[in-house]
Nucleic acid binder design. Structure first.
Lengths: 152, 152
DNA sequence: TTTACTGCAAACGATTTGCAGTCCC
DNA sequence: GGGACTGCAAATCGTTTGCAGTAAA
């Protein structure tokens, strides 16, 4: 299999991450690039399985293990966020890799991004008052989404 | 095995939860009461395994499955909080079962309770602006605790 | 006596890992 | 050509479950 990433146009973000991968000495295998593209263009906070399904449409041989390996790599690079739920699969956010609050519907399991102003300030204050060196956070708000409320 | 919960003094909270269990038609087995007591007197956010170890000191036959079953029951009753971490075991908070932010040290895995004023107000605002019916939240702040910082 | 609960062991399911072969660079 | 990466299958591990026996009420 052979793919030349330069032959296809891509978003600045995609190109930047490909660049980062190259700088790391990582190979740009077709599977890897396809997984990355799938992550950057899916705002639904997909599971590894869902990414696998989507990538298999393009490269049928792709294994789930490779998806997991690649997601780990991208996570370590800071290119995506993993939302680890206790039960069921992790969900991934490749659209906004910076910590931000999520609204999680406990009925349909939809995850929505949301914005809470000054959250950075809040964690800064915690850092100062407790002596904790804050490196990140996760703020999940659970409830029932508007759609599920109307369904009943 | 036979234990009479009334023969021992207990905190008001312990007695209230025992009462709640009885009201539900649940049996007050020695294992169950011991697990509950262990949870109410351990502020270290223990794992199921750690609770199992502690309870086995008192009732050596106690199985880990019973610990899990009992923790599930207590969680469903709202008597404790489960902190589900993606990797490793869940941690449980039986001291403060109401949602509150946690400071999690990514080096020594200590979990500290903390207080952020007006967090309830924040989730209320999110509820109003998004139409989400908020039922709970989880706010984990990751970093390096003061002790681990001094160790280097 | 009734039946909820227990211990045990096997099952489960998401993720990781070992390995032999592949193919990007 | 070398070694990072792949697919596959087996291993891992926290947690759940089935079941026959036990004991709380």
């Amino acid at each position: 299999m052979h793919v030349n990433p330069h032959s296809q146009s891509g978003s600045p973000r995609l190109l930047a991450i490909l660049q980062q991968l190259r700088a790391r000495g990582c190979r740009l295998t077709p599977q890897r690039v396809a997984i990355l593209q799938a992550m950057l263009t899916n705002a639904e906070h997909p599971t590894a399985e869902q990414i696998h399904t989507r990538v298999k449409a393009q490269f049928p041989m792709t294994s789930l293990a490779t998806v997991y390996n690649t997601l780990d790599l991208l996570k370590e690079m800071g290119a995506l966020l993993e939302i680890e739920l206790g039960h069921g699969s992790s969900r991934f956010d490749g659209v906004n890799p910076h910590p931000h609050p999520h609204l999680i519907c406990t009925r349909c399991h939809t995850i929505l991004d949301t914005d809470i102003p000054h959250l950075q300030t809040v964690t800064d204050v915690v850092s100062q008052t407790t002596g904790f060196m804050v490196t990140g956070y996760r703020f999940d708000i659970f409830g029932i989404c508007p759609t599920c409320q109307t369904i009943g």
